[in-house]
Simulated scan of single mutants.
Amino acid sequence: MMINSPAIVIHSLRYSEADLIVSLFTKTSGLRSYLIRGVLKSKRGKIRASLFQPLTLLEIEAFHKNKGSLERIKDAKIKSVYTTLHTDLIKNSLVFFIAEVLKNSIQEEEANIDLFEYLETALIWLDTHNTIGNFHITFLIKLTQYLGFYPDVSHIEGAYFNLEEGVFQFSSSTMYCVSGDQVTYFKKFLGTTFEDSMSVKLSKGIRSELLTMLLVYFELHLYSFKKPKSLSVLHEIFN
């Protein structure tokens, strides 16, 4: 079956001497993996290896067998040209972190249009703004909404947040209940826009603790999730 779809590059892996296996989150078909032959040696081909940098927004024409095997791309081109995402050191570090988070979070070979549109909007926002210190915090919190475990705010006045249940509580009930400054600041991000969240003032320590808390939250709610290897780089840059 031939499909035409916007797609976001999640991951690419060199395969043999000249081939790439690329993982794309497509708007029409969810997460798919493609084998692209000869792309690392071809200089004149229609499909170039440079198209498959992490989180690049593409338009693809592809052939899907829908049998759980590697699919084939017939054509690919840039959908939205980034101006800073792959050249700015801080943004590029965020790109690798986000790509790892998505690689460990998205598994389904089915369309999730709302998630795709959220990711596209978030990436373009990151590319076009300079004040981005809290972007990764906001991004992760908003992502939970599309993955199905956004925090229940029914009792948001509670001093504890139960990471396992995703609810606020007035007392601690398990080892996964957290409290203190990280919960106080966590509440400030809930329901905010990217723009508004940038005005939340965080110390380096609190930002680091909040990020660690969120990644534990992801681990508890997504079976296959692992902490990104790029986390240490992110901590270095934002600290």
Rank of each mutant, 00 (worst) to 15 (best):
H155M: 12
S171W: 06
V183T: 02
Y160G: 01
K187N: 04
C177K: 00
E157C: 06
H155F: 15
E165S: 14
G158E: 04
V178K: 06
T193K: 06
S172W: 07
Y176T: 05
I156E: 03
K188I: 10
F170Y: 11
A159P: 03
D196T: 09
A159W: 01
Y160K: 05
T193Y: 06
F186R: 01
Y185K: 14
S172N: 06
L190S: 08
G180E: 03
L190D: 00
S179M: 07
T192P: 05
S172G: 11
L190G: 03
L190V: 10
G180S: 09
E157F: 08
V167I: 14
F194W: 08
V183M: 05
T193E: 02
F168D: 01
N162Q: 01
F189A: 02
S199M: 10
K188Y: 10
T192R: 15
G180Y: 07
K187R: 15
S199H: 09
E164W: 00
F161D: 00
F168M: 05
D181C: 12
S172Y: 05
L163W: 07
F194E: 04
S199R: 15
S173N: 11
D181K: 15
D196F: 10
N162S: 00
F170M: 02
S197C: 08
D196E: 10
V183R: 05
H155I: 15
S171C: 05
F170V: 06
G158H: 06
Y176L: 14
C177R: 00
E157G: 12
D181F: 09
S171A: 12
Q182G: 02
D181I: 14
S154D: 08
M175E: 12
G166T: 06
G180A: 08
K187T: 00
Q169W: 06
C177G: 07
S171T: 10
K188G: 14
V167R: 11
S199C: 09
V178C: 03
I156G: 03
D196V: 13
D181T: 15
E195K: 15
E165G: 03
K187P: 00
C177M: 02
G166Q: 07
T184P: 13
M198T: 13
D196Q: 10
T192W: 09
E164M: 09
S197F: 11
E157M: 08
D196L: 15
A159L: 12
F189G: 08
V178L: 11
L163C: 11
A159G: 09
G191C: 15
K188L: 10
F186D: 00
K188W: 03
F189P: 02
E165R: 13
Q169N: 14
S173A: 13
C177D: 00
Y176I: 01
F189Y: 13
D196I: 13
S154K: 13
A159T: 08
F168N: 04
V183W: 05
E195H: 14
N162K: 06
G158K: 03
E165M: 09
L190M: 07
L190K: 04
V167H: 08
T184Y: 12
N162P: 03
S171K: 13
V178I: 07
M198K: 11
G191P: 12
E195G: 14
S173M: 12
D196P: 02
G180M: 12
E195P: 07
F170L: 08
H155N: 15
K188V: 09
F170W: 10
K188A: 13
K187D: 00
G158I: 11
T174P: 01
Y160Q: 03
V200A: 15
F189C: 02
F161L: 02
E164C: 03
E157I: 10
F161V: 01
G191V: 11
S179A: 11
F186T: 00
